[in-house]
Write a protein that binds this DNA or RNA. Structure first.
Lengths: 201, 201
DNA sequence: GCGGCGTTCTTAACAGTGTCAAGATTATGA
DNA sequence: TCATAATCTTGACACTGTTAAGAACGCCGC
């Protein structure tokens, strides 16, 4: 009579959906401690599973971190997609949204855009998710019709916002600059406009 | 008759100048493996001393890394001091010199300007050396006579070059951009000039 | 229903890390 | 010269990522 449906958290030897549970626990730990503070054993402990259990779902720590970063790139894509496709939104607005994402998820941002010691960019899912998100940015910043990624414009725009994010997260800049952000991001626009004018006679 | 002068490398129980030997070995290891690849035990091994010997000269790994970063800031200061004090040199030239330093010492740059997980910015020598170097940059980029570090100009300039350095080191940008660097760094100048014009009626 | 089989998970171990305590060795200064 | 402080070694502890060997479980074909 009492039908025992296999619920999400099937207690016992088997977990049910350990893979996504590990990713979510990793995401939480990432924001609390930053990358480097994330240990495979701590993630397993959080989920209530033994130290070696994750190896049934990931080849190693790098693969778990890559899966976490993949989630991050998907979130970023979903966040900036409407802004990038709307011609009414300026490049500066896109920069502000990018900045908001980074400051809201500093650990995740560092994992996604930091050195490749923690993630493996040759991972298919990761590189695909990364390209999807970054293409949206390049689309907005690039001179139309040209090989966007080689133009000084988009490179400078990405460098500016990335550097700003990093310096802010690492507390290298004085505090209380929040209302200066739009002005800072707008400083690049005259130069880009000039450069486009030169480039297309 | 045979006078044994206490040479630099006094073999035996005592090393002679273990402190600076550790710093130099750390610098070498840093460029070969990057931060995170530097282990206290590996540095000690390199110098030919036991694992716990460094603790006679440094309170822990963080303090050794902070000493290494202090050397880095001194080098950077010496490198950019002539450029910063010469009014004939443009901001873009200073940016190129900064970029050269970073790409020539990627591990050291990451240690100096990355997150504070490896170094302790409350360390007196480190913060002093850092301020000396950064003040030179702010002097060049800042609107004269104002509180330089709060102006959008210097913040944007530092962010741009820092972001560019990071993206280059982490191989997030396509290769073969070396000759584009001056153009990228110059894109900010029209915006800064405009902003100064607004700010000083 | 049920037995085999592959997946999932546990326990145990190995090498590596930072750090500390106790003790041996050397330099220094009164 | 000899006590004292500085320097260095050995040994240990807790932590990390990773692997091997084996136990518990879900499922598929009979």
């Amino acid at each position: 009579m009492i039908q025992v449906v296999p619920e999400m958290q099937a207690r016992g030897y088997h977990h049910g959906d350990l893979r996504t549970a590990l990713i979510e626990a990793g995401l939480a730990l990432l924001e609390r401690e930053g990358p480097g503070g994330v240990s495979l054993r701590a993630v397993a402990r959080q989920v209530g599973v033994s130290q070696a259990a994750p190896y049934a779902h990931f080849h190693g720590k790098r693969e778990l971190m890559s899966a976490i970063a993949t989630v991050g790139f998907s979130r970023l894509r979903d966040l900036i997609a409407p802004l990038a496709s709307d011609p009414a939104r300026s490049l500066g607005e896109l920069g502000l949204a990018y900045l908001d994402f980074a400051t809201a998820n500093p650990g995740l941002y560092r994992l996604m855009f930091g050195s490749d010691e923690h993630i493996d960019m040759r991972n298919e899912h990761l590189s695909a998710a990364s390209r999807q998100a970054l293409d949206l940015l390049a689309m907005k910043a690039g001179r139309k019709g040209s090989d966007a990624i080689r133009d000084p414009g988009p490179i400078a725009a990405w460098s500016l916002v990335h550097g700003l994010v990093m310096l802010l997260m690492d507390e290298k800049l004085p505090s209380g600059l929040d209302q200066s952000m739009p002005a800072i991001l707008r400083l690049l626009e005259p130069g880009i406009a000039e450069h486009i004018h030169e480039g297309q006679p």
